[in-house]
């Protein structure tokens, strides 16, 4: 028996909106520690890892580990039927082939339940070790989204370079080139507007903008995004999900050969 009650139901709506274009079908893994997901896009270039810790739920009951295979587009369709301030409860029986989403309005005057069929999904799980990164950039998520969107009108790839001067996003295309430099800005009064760069060594990596743009669908979840870079390792683009967890996107770099 699984029963997860999330008062901030709007968070789950935002999580699904940020996943559904990258991944079609995925297994949500439920255990005593939380509700998580790891899935790759169809070309196995990008991966998303989601964790919502059990403490973040108002009520969290998970009698035994369960894996719920869901079509993310269909799940997003159902969650779109919840209001942003609704309380969302996810329910499933151990042997059931369906999951129920219950939406309650904050004053309890409207209660809806939507039942969705589960799927058997044969997914590949990757072991991702904790890594030390050469550079970690924390910046406003809206600024990062704007940069990715702007650069993708000019080129297909972005070179992200971190030096002690700042972080530079560069692209080139048929019509020309573009460089955007963001300097460190601690913004003590408004921490959500800060740009903080922790650099062990300068690093420069090339990525497909199409995927970066897809990751920025998570912008409504968090004011800040963290971009972790190391030479010849996938970049990690992380958005915190309130106080309860994170959504991390991994993208393999492009390599010149």
């Amino acid at each position: 028996m699984l029963e997860l009650r999330l008062v901030q139901g709007g968070l789950l709506k935002k999580v699904l909106e940020s996943l559904k274009d990258l991944v079609n079908d995925a297994n949500f893994d439920c255990s005593a520690s939380g509700f998580s997901l790891q899935a790759m896009d169809s070309s196995h270039v990008a991966l998303v890892a989601l964790l919502l810790r059990s403490e973040g739920f108002e009520h969290y009951r998970c009698d035994r580990n369960l894996s719920l295979g869901m079509n993310l587009n269909n799940m997003a369709k159902m969650l779109k039927c919840a209001a942003n301030d609704d309380i969302v409860t996810i329910k499933a029986d151990d042997a059931s082939d369906s999951v129920t989403f219950m939406f309650e309005s904050p004053n309890q005057d409207k209660i809806a339940d939507f039942e969705m069929k589960l799927m058997d999904i044969d997914s590949e799980h990757l072991g991702i070790p904790e890594a030390e990164f050469q550079a970690i950039v924390r910046m406003p998520s809206a600024e990062f989204a704007r940069i990715c969107k702007d650069l993708s009108t000019i080129g297909d790839t972005v070179v992200i370079s971190v030096t002690k001067e700042g972080v530079k996003f560069s692209t080139r295309g048929d019509i020309g080139t573009a460089n955007i430099v963001c300097r460190q800005n601690p913004s003590i009064d408004k921490p959500e507007e800060a740009t903080i760069i922790e650099m062990e060594e300068p690093v420069s990596l090339t990525f497909a903008l199409r995927y970066m743009n897809s990751f920025t669908k998570a912008t409504p979840l968090a004011n800040q995004v963290t971009i972790s870079l190391s030479a010849d390792l996938p970049v990690v683009v992380e958005y915190r999900v309130a106080e309860m967890g994170y959504i991390r996107f991994y993208l393999a770099p492009k390599i010149e050969e």
Binding site: M40, S43, H44, V45, A46, L47, E124, H125, L126, G127, I128, P129, T157, T206, A208, L233, P234, Y250, A252, P253, K254, I255, E256, E257
Partner: peptide, 14 residues
């Protein structure tokens, strides 16, 4: 030429 790598070149399958 620039080649796009895949994630299994970095992370092992569990």
């Amino acid at each position: 030429d620039i080649f796009q790598r895949v994630l299994v070149e970095y992370f092992d399958s569990k």
